[in-house]
Simulated scan of single mutants.
Amino acid sequence: MVPGLEVKFAGGAPILSDGHVIEGYASLFGLTDQGGDAVMRGAFAASLAKLSAKGDKVRMLWQHDPAKPIGVWDEIREDEKGLWVKGRLLPDVIQAREAAALIQAGAIDGLSIGYRTIRAERDQKGRRALAEVELWEVSLVTFPMLPEAKVGRKEAEDLREMADLFAIAADALRND
C-alpha cells in the first residue's frame, strides 16, 4: 500500500481517494537559469504572505498550462536553499495520473515557476537578479528553465507503487 494513499472499492473497481505527495525545489537561490535570471533569497516572501493573507494558493499546473491543473501545493516556503514545495497529484485528474507514471519512470522530474517580476536588477552581462516576484504557479515540466529545480528523488519508490495501483485499477475497469 502506498503511504498517504487510501484505496476504496466501488462496484469492484478501486477508487483512489487521496493524492500522491510530491516535493522538491521549484527554484534555487542565486543560480542563473537558461533565460539569464537568478532568484535572490527573499524574492517570494511578500507574494507568499499576500497569498496567505487572502487565503489563496499557488497553483500546481502541468507544463505551465492554466487549463491543466493537476494537483494542489499544500506547503510552499523559502528556506536557505530556495523555494521548497510539497503537494499532491490528484488521482481523479487524468493528467495527474499520467504525471505520476512519468515521474515514476524517470521521464519527467522538472519543476518550474510561473511569476511576474516586481523588482529586479541587471548586471553587466545582462543577467537579472530577481529581488521580488509575484508567484502564480509551480508546474511539473519536462524542461525546467532552471535544470536543478526538480521533484525530490526520495519519492520515486512511492510513485512506483502508485503507478502499480493505477495499473491494477485500469485492469479492473477493463475487466468489468
Score class of each variant (00 low, 15 high):
Ser52Val: 02
Leu5Pro: 06
Lys86Ile: 03
Arg174Val: 07
Lys150Glu: 06
Thr142Tyr: 10
Thr117Ala: 09
Val58Asn: 01
Ala129Gln: 12
Met60Leu: 13
Lys81Asp: 03
Leu140Met: 10
Gly42Asn: 08
Glu80Phe: 11
Met40His: 01
Lys150Gln: 10
Ser27Arg: 09
Val2Met: 12
Gly35Asp: 13
Ile94Gln: 12
Leu165Ile: 15
His64Lys: 01
Arg116Gln: 07
Glu6Cys: 07
Asp56Gln: 08
Ala10Phe: 13
Ile15Gln: 11
Trp84Met: 07
Leu16Ile: 14
Glu75His: 10
Ile113Phe: 04
Glu80Ala: 15
Thr32Cys: 10
Arg160Tyr: 14
Arg41His: 09
Arg88Tyr: 12
Gly24Lys: 06
Arg119Thr: 08
Asp74Ile: 00
Ile168Gln: 15
Thr142His: 13
Val7His: 03
Gln34Lys: 15
Ser47Cys: 02
Val21Ser: 12
Ala172Asn: 08
Arg41Ile: 09
His20Trp: 13
Asp79Phe: 09
Gln124Ile: 02
Ala169Gly: 11
Ala169Met: 15
Ile22Val: 15
Gln63Arg: 11
Leu159Val: 06
Val39Gly: 03
His64Asn: 01
Gly35Leu: 12
Gly87Lys: 11
Leu165Cys: 13
Arg128Val: 00
Asp92Lys: 13
Arg127Leu: 06
Ile70Cys: 06
Lys8Phe: 06
Met145Trp: 09
Pro69His: 08
Leu111Gly: 06
Arg160Cys: 12
Arg122Leu: 08
Lys154Pro: 01
Phe44Gly: 00
Arg77Phe: 03
Gly152Thr: 03
Gly71Phe: 10
Ser47Ala: 05
Lys50Val: 02
Asp158Ile: 11
Lys8Ala: 10
Pro3Ser: 11
Ala38His: 01
Glu98Asn: 13
Gly71Met: 06
Ile22Phe: 15
Gln104Cys: 15
Ala67Gly: 10
Asp171Gly: 15
Ile94Phe: 12
Ile108Lys: 09
Ile70Asp: 04
Ser17His: 09
Trp84Gly: 02
Val141Gln: 06
Ser112Phe: 09
Lys125Gln: 06
Thr142Asp: 11
Gly36Trp: 08
Lys154Tyr: 05
Gly114Met: 08
Gly24Tyr: 06
Ile118Val: 14
Asp123Cys: 02
Glu137Leu: 05
Trp73Arg: 02
Leu31Asn: 08
His20Arg: 13
Ala172Leu: 15
Pro147Tyr: 00
Gln34His: 13
Thr117Phe: 05
Arg88Lys: 14
Gly55Pro: 00
Asp176His: 12
Leu165Arg: 15
Arg174Cys: 05
Val138Met: 03
Ala38Met: 04
Gln104Asn: 14
Ala167Ser: 15
Leu146Asp: 08
Leu135Pro: 01
Leu140Trp: 05
Asp123Lys: 07
Glu157Thr: 14
Ile94His: 12
Ile76Gln: 02
Gly11Pro: 04
Gln104His: 15
Gln95Pro: 02
Leu146Gly: 03
Lys125Phe: 08
Val2Arg: 15
Asp158Tyr: 10
Met40Asp: 04
Asp18Arg: 13
Asn175Lys: 14
Ile108Cys: 08
Glu148Pro: 01
Arg88Gly: 05
